[in-house]
Amino acid sequence: MAAGSTSLWDWDYAFSIIPDLLKALLTTIEITVLGSAVAFVLGLVIAVVRRARIPVVDQVLWALVEVIRSTPLLVQIFFLFFVLPRFGLTLSAFVVGVTALGVHYATYTSEVYRAGIDAVPKGQWEAATALSLPRSRVWTGVILPQAIPRVLPALGNYAISMFKEVPLLLAIGVVEVVNAGRELGSETFRFTEPYTIAGVLFLVLSYPASMLVRRLERRAAVR
């Protein structure tokens, strides 16, 4: 309808595409929430297992974490997308996306958890040992309740980072905001409105979220 309009910014067109972009934004949020859940849980598992320093397991985990941290997320997305089917595991692009983001960010969050666990005073470990608590209780009852609150702001920051990296999934066909914008734009040959609105949507969500995290950080620093 607005196709062929030569003005730099077409308000009618901009408003007409907002519903579609919002729907795609919902997909982006969904992927962020699921991906963060994977990253938060898997990162904790990696941090706790690595602390046990089990021979071989520790070296393998170290190497995996280093490789994933030092190589592009986009390559990892392609890797899962093209390699998993060769092992008979064909997942939807959505699931590949959540997995790639979740595993990638788990390598970051594992470092965060590690720093948080290291920050728990040694006396806490000794006291727990003195009480002869079983290993699992030491973790769940003593160490993690002290370690996790102080890493929450850092985890929040990673969730926000992940949100902004969801558009990489357009490369495997996930219809998140940018891909939706691209599809809308290729119908009308107008990309100014879709991509600008996409940027605004990211800013409108991530800026207040990072303000919130900063406030959390400040409060944690005071304590």
């Binding site: 902004k164 558009p167 940018v178 990309f191 100014t192 990211f202 800013l203 800026y207």
Partner: peptide, 23 residues
């Protein structure tokens, strides 16, 4: 700072590659 930190890098890339030329 907040403008570039708050929007996605992919959005920035597409904006500069596809929108900026129009402008």
């Amino acid at each position: 700072v907040e403008g570039f930190r708050g929007t996605s890098e992919v959005v920035q890339l597409f904006w500069i590659y596809f929108v900026l030329p129009v402008l």
